[in-house]
Amino acid sequence: MAEAISLRSQSSGRAEALMNNSRIIERARGGDDEAFRMIFDRYSRPIISFIYDMVGQRELAEELTQETFVRAYRSLKLLRDDAKLSTWLFGIAKNVARESLRSRMRENHRVEIDDDRVAMIADNELTPDDRLLNKELSLVIQAALSALDEDKRMVFTLKIFQQRSYEEIADITGFSVPKLKTDLHRARAEMRRRIEPYLGVGYEV
């Protein structure tokens, strides 16, 4: 009984949130800056994280996040399903990040992993200091992410860091579910190879 009540209240809470979302979107569509600010506040953090994971540079990630929200503002009238605002924003962020990666490729500034750096970090004895370890691990993860090809990096980031469902990832990327499952599996394997030393004592492959 208590569980049923809890489920009902969760569901009505979700419905209320969706309704609020719709109201905010409607206001933003009408040119209300404050409403658009609320959308920005709600989604800017996951969007900037996603873009950063894709491009690997802080300044560029900030610039591209800005571009994402400007484009979103411009095209807000085209959003057909208000409940999919988040997926839609990620879709724009994906396009913005991809365009940037491609233009950098054209300029021969390829995003490449410094394999030696990762190998060095991974092979070194780990410091017992947790903070330092985290920093080090973050560097390893970031470098390992950069080593993934673009499709795998995108799928991996959306699943592992953004906790998106396969269906949402398919919506954002335009990939089929079988393709994204394959990409995710391969990305996990590649990432595993690089973060193995950090998986803890007693971990055996």
């Binding site: 800017s44 592992i160 998986l199």
Partner: peptide, 29 residues
């Protein structure tokens, strides 16, 4: 898979949402 996921949650990015970011978006709009 569980251990890996746990490890990934400790991933710290050197990027954050700053007030300047919204100011930039607003200016461009």
């Amino acid at each position: 898979l569980g251990r890996e996921q746990e490890l990934y949650t400790s991933y710290e990015r050197e990027v954050d949402v700053t007030p300047a970011l919204w100011a930039g978006v607003q200016a461009r709009i």
